[in-house]
C-alpha cells in the first residue's frame, strides 16, 4: 500500500508563510478610534486590532499578537484587506471568510488573497486560529456608530 503524501501544503500556502514571516501593519495606531483584543485560550494565540476610522470607512488597521502562523498571517492579511472598506463591507467579508472556513464553501470573489486560507477548512482544529483576528475585528467594530 502506497503511503500518501502528507497534506499540509494546502494549509501552509506560500502567501500565508510570507505574512507570518513578514507581517504587515504590525504595531499600534496612535490615532486608533477602535480597538479590541482576543485570544484562543486553548492554544494561547493572541491578537489585538486597532482601527483608524474616516467617514464610516476603516482608514488604517494594525495588529499586535503572538501565536501560530495561521493566526498571525490571518491578522496580517486582514489589516491589508480591510483598509479603505466600509463597516458594512467588512462585515460581509468576515461572513464570507467564515463560511469558506467553517462550511468549506468555495471562496467568494471579494475575498481576494484571503482565499489562501481555504485549505485551513480541512484542518478543523486550526479554523479558530484563522478566525481569531476576524472575531476581534468584529468586536472592535461593535464600537463603530
Amino acid at each position: 500500500m502506497a503511503i500518501p503524501e502528507p497534506q499540509f501544503d494546502e494549509l501552509y500556502r506560500e502567501l500565508i508563510l510570507q505574512h507570518y514571516r513578514h507581517p504587515r501593519n504590525r504595531g499600534r495606531l496612535p490615532g486608533a478610534a477602535l480597538r479590541a483584543e482576543g485570544a484562543n485560550p486553548v492554544c494561547g494565540d493572541e491578537v489585538t486590532i486597532e482601527l483608524e476610522m474616516n467617514d464610516g470607512r476603516i482608514a488604517r488597521a494594525a495588529f499586535e499578537g503572538q501565536g501560530c502562523s495561521i493566526s498571525q498571517a490571518s491578522a496580517s492579511m486582514l489589516t491589508e484587506t480591510v483598509a479603505g472598506k466600509t463597516v458594512a463591507e467588512v462585515r460581509r467579508l468576515a461572513d464570507a471568510f467564515e463560511r469558506m472556513l467553517v462550511n468549506g464553501e468555495p471562496p467568494a470573489p471579494e475575498l481576494g488573497d484571503l482565499e489562501a486560507f481555504q485549505g485551513v477548512s480541512k484542518f478543523p482544529v486550526r479554523v479558530k486560529c484563522a478566525l481569531l483576528s476576524w472575531k476581534v475585528l468584529q468586536r472592535a467594530l461593535e464600537g463603530a456608530a
Binding site: P6, Q7, L11, C43, G44, S69, R126
Partner: peptide, 23 residues
C-alpha cells in the same frame, strides 16, 4: 526557531505523529 508549536504539531500529525503543543 521560527516554527510555532501548533504548526509543528499539525505537520507532525500529517505524518501520523501525535504530539502536544501549547502551555
Amino acid at each position: 526557531d521560527g516554527v510555532h508549536p501548533h504548526d509543528v504539531a499539525t505537520i507532525a500529525d500529517s505524518f501520523g505523529v501525535a504530539i502536544r503543543a501549547g502551555h
